[in-house]
Design a protein around this nucleic acid. Structure first.
Lengths: 343, 343
DNA sequence: CGTTAGCACTCGGAGGTCGAGAGTGCTAAC
DNA sequence: GTTAGCACTCTCGACCTCCGAGTGCTAACG
């Protein structure tokens, strides 16, 4: 446990380092902020902090740099989560209101907002249902032997797939098939549809199997499709101005390995998690921190949103923004999911 | 017009520079390739090329570097488009075959393949119909006052939108509405539906207007959604290892300004275009080249695919790959669009 | 006239030195 | 526990020098 003043010193070092990205000297602290003590005292405190592993120095006569442990302590004990200013709240709510009808836009908006306000990379996953349930199917004739299968899953997820037939079918026939399947399978989970498929004609059974395939693919994913925004920002950060590390990071961000390497196994909705530097699984992320939260309706549907930046990240702002936008998304999704269950 | 040997020298300089990214000295050329003349002669030729504006030198005693004009001459007159090797053709065709049923995957695959084989950024637009025509609509009840409108446009494009009602509606009522609208409006363009909407009940008219809105948004776009892949590769290029230029470029790539700033107004299907360095509209692209082609069915549906790299780009490989994958995509799309018109 | 050999010249970049300045650790006093 | 003073360390930028690559020029040759 740190004394009150040492904690302040650590906090100031972190605040200062986050702003300037340069090692923080003792004198700047004693001078700039009214600590009421002399630089020498601050130096002593800094020596203690260094012994405790909260800060390090690049060279003997360089200022203090927070370590991952220092940031961790800051996030746990020192940081006061910044309130999202009213005008920002209003602005964001308004923007979401504008795209309320456009499901695709929610995530893009969330990602764009996070990326811009925090000058970082933002990753937002499309919502994904815990148990995929069929909502509706639709068959559209394209050619004599080719049709488009549109599958609407619970929670408004949409999938499409081409279906080839052995013999010509008309749109009327397709309508008949889809009506029958809809009547039979609405609200069913994958295993239920599989069981059901046995009792169908071969043609209908074929469609049902295609539907099951679509749902299978959906179930296999841990997260919905990801929306990544703001990659340009990390290049602006001095620690990533170029070189190996940056390449490795971009590899991660682009290669679709995000899910396996950055996002955790599961995300609890509404709790904001912070992963700092070396706490990350990937080597390439060792100088990055991730602030993430889940959103959605527990046990029903959910997704994750995350902000990725250098460890030198304004955690107070990041946490509050991620929390805010996460709860906004939860509300939006919640509206869709409380379907026909008044209350 | 260049003499035969000078053209060869230019070609060799470009080939060499593309490989090594370092200025090409006269001796390397005379020595490495069997030109049959002495370095001094090559030097004279290089002086002529420099006067003609085909190459430049970074400093007085540095080797030759191709200019944009040099690359242009190379692309027009010197380059032999590399044949895509048989095994690569097979591999690519096979990969497309694997995702034939998954419309979303076509573009992603195309972009991923281009990016990987050419070590560049690849941009592929989703196909977009020249004239948006309604294919089918679908209404799915979500809550008492909320429904999901699914719009299938000609060419298998899918859009969705939330619809709020003033009073409760059942799924049966929604089915009735969608059946009526489908019967009435299938295959119609936007103005036709607008005209049609007057003759409808207020409820049906509301849905029709929503459909029109969706189509409007679709018509407003010049290209379909873009799929960008391989951004990491440009960071690997020595000319973009970091700094201002790279930031500016990433800004362009991410900001959705691709369409306005990189892709041209229109793309003719099947013709491969090359835009070199300063020929680009954007300043940030002054050290980049773009190789692009259209794909699709003329006057029906189309999109574009492009490869973006440093001006020091293997044009011969890029042009052939873009052409190859473009024609593959055209074939795939063509199959969908020859709907119910045998022949 | 095109080509070649020889040679002096130029220029960039690596490596080294130097000095200034920042910021510390230590010590001794309060 | 806090403070002042001071010597010490280390980085960083400026400056320099030198090396060598690669050229341009000139003069000779077929």
């Amino acid at each position: 446990m740190l004394t009150r003043r040492r904690a302040s010193v650590l906090r100031l070092i972190i605040d200062e380092y986050i702003m300037t990205a340069t090692p923080v000297p003792s004198e700047a602290l004693a001078h700039k902020y009214a600590l009421g003590v002399s630089p020498a005292t601050v130096r002593n405190d800094m020596a203690t902090l260094e012994d405790g592993g909260y800060i390090s120095r690049r060279h003997i006569s360089g200022g203090g740099i927070p370590t991952d442990q220092g940031y961790r302590y800051y996030v746990e004990s020192l940081m006061r989560e910044e309130d999202v200013p009213v005008d920002e709240r209003l602005m964001v709510s308004h923007l979401f209101f504008l795209v309320e009808r456009e499901l695709e836009e929610w995530n893009r908006l969330a990602a764009a907002l996070l990326a811009r306000t925090l000058n970082s990379v933002a990753i937002v996953s499309f919502p994904k249902a815990a148990r995929t349930r069929l909502k509706h199917i639709e068959l559209v004739a394209l050619q004599e032997l080719l049709a488009l299968l549109v599958v609407v899953l619970r929670g408004t997820r949409l999938r499409r797939q081409l279906i080839a037939f052995d013999e010509a079918v008309t749109q009327d026939e397709l309508n008949a098939i889809s009506n029958r399947l809809n009547a039979l399978c609405e609200g069913m989970t994958r295993p239920q549809i599989v069981a059901c498929a046995d009792r169908l004609s071969s043609q209908e059974g074929g469609i049902a199997r295609a539907v099951v395939q679509v749902m299978e693919k959906e179930d296999a994913l841990r997260y919905g499709e990801l929306c990544v925004e703001g990659v340009r920002h990390i290049l602006g950060q001095p620690e990533f101005s170029g070189g190996e590390k940056t390449m490795a990071l971009l590899d991660l961000l682009e290669g679709g390995r995000l899910v396996t390497s950055i996002l955790p196994e599961t995300v609890a909705p509404d709790g904001v998690q912070v992963i700092i530097g070396s706490e990350n699984r990937e080597d390439a992320m060792r100088e990055c921190s991730v602030v993430l939260a889940g959103y959605g309706v527990p046990d029903e549907v959910g997704g994750a949103l995350a902000v990725l930046g250098p460890t030198r990240m304004p955690y107070d702002r990041a946490v509050s923004r991620v929390r805010f936008i996460g709860s906004l998304m939860s509300d939006l999704i919640g509206q869709l999911y409380r379907e026909r269950r008044p209350g």
